[in-house]
Simulated scan of single mutants.
Amino acid sequence: MTAGTASADDWSTPGAVEVSPGVHRIPLPLPNDALKAVNVYALTGPDGVDLVDSGWALANARDTLVDALAGLGHGLPDVRRFLVTHVHRDHYTQAVLLRREFGMRVSLGVDERASLEESMRPDRLPMEAQLTRLPSLGAGHLVELLGDRFRRHLDVDEPIWELPDDWLQPGTTVSAGGRNLDVVPTPGHTQGHVVFHDTDERVLFAGDHVLPTITPSIGFEPVLSPSPLADFLSSLARVRSRPDALLLPAHGPVAPSAHARVDELVAHHGQRLDQTEDAVRRGSSTPFEVAGILRWTRRERELADLDPFNRMLAVLETTAHLELLVAQGRLRTSVADGVHHFAVA
């Protein structure tokens, strides 16, 4: 196995693996996530270290990061800046926690501001927007199950949502580790998601926008986008229009071609749109009903076999596909008793 590569099984093994000259992939643990780990990328230069993404603010994630940086001859005081792809907990919160102690800068895409400010609201229930929407999608029964889970989460969650030092503007260039990185807007997973593209060295720090083995969730944020799937597909086209690059994802092993994976993701969603339309043609009407016809994960599982949290994600993703089909003129929508229904146009 060559330097910088990892199989789908061992990519989460702790350590620092060089994936490009001066760039090391550092997987940090997640507490209870099937993704196993999140990749943080260390860009080393003569003046210190810049990190792309930061990991979840957990003691074992901090320890793992400290050990990996030590292997590169650095410590946390050498970190100058965090460049964060989006404002999810596993990408942003450790940066905030470490900034309190060491004072490094934290930079985030400007279009994440609304969701971050919503997360900072002290009385906000986690996933509040998603829970509020579920009854209108025919999945109101999930609210009680998930609401209790998230209320328990509030009791133990430290308030670690704070504003960044810098708001990254789309279309600009930032310097990190002696490299010039283009800040490319890629809304879809979240509205303010950005990727960092080094065109000189042909490297793409892709965050959760392009993942090598799974399809990222869309519209997974406190302030919901009106068209997350359309945004995501447009963002894929934007990445595809740029020079190809080594794919450095936030979850999973490094892949040789960002373009190749983009093509797979576009094909997947095209197929999913067809399957969603077919479910409506067969008589399903609400997003919950359609999600129950579709199959989920690479194991082709039924909706009822998923835990309540992933059932919620499945219903929300199905809704995004249904709404895009309406925008394309393939379906029409109506509301009865507060519930959205879809039918063939």
Rank of each mutant, 00 (worst) to 15 (best):
D90M: 10
R281I: 08
T276D: 01
P222V: 11
L181K: 04
N32W: 15
S119A: 01
T186A: 12
N310M: 06
P31D: 15
F309H: 14
L331W: 00
T297H: 08
A70Y: 03
I26Q: 06
L116Q: 01
R238D: 03
P253D: 08
A57K: 13
I26H: 05
G48M: 12
A129P: 00
Q169K: 14
I218G: 02
D148Q: 13
E128S: 15
S284Q: 09
S107R: 13
A59E: 14
G177L: 06
E264I: 09
V344G: 11
F82E: 02
H321Q: 08
R282M: 10
E323V: 05
L43D: 01
P256M: 12
V210G: 05
L322S: 02
A139R: 07
P77S: 08
D33A: 14
L247Q: 08
P222S: 14
E158V: 15
G252R: 02
L229A: 04
L28Q: 06
A16L: 10
S119M: 11
V210T: 09
T44S: 13
S12E: 11
L204T: 05
A304N: 11
P253I: 09
V335Q: 06
S54C: 10
L306C: 04
I26E: 04
Q130K: 09
R25W: 05
L324G: 06
R62S: 10
T132P: 02
G192I: 07
P159V: 14
W167I: 03
G177W: 07
R282Y: 01
R272N: 07
R295F: 00
H209Y: 07
F288W: 14
V239R: 04
V66G: 09
G48E: 09
V143A: 07
L146D: 04
Q328G: 00
T172R: 03
Y92T: 10
Y92S: 06
G219L: 06
G140K: 12
R330S: 01
E264Q: 15
F205D: 11
D123P: 03
G192V: 06
E112C: 14
R149T: 13
E101H: 12
T2W: 14
E201H: 15
R282N: 13
E317D: 12
T13G: 01
G219M: 08
G71E: 05
P21A: 04
V262F: 13
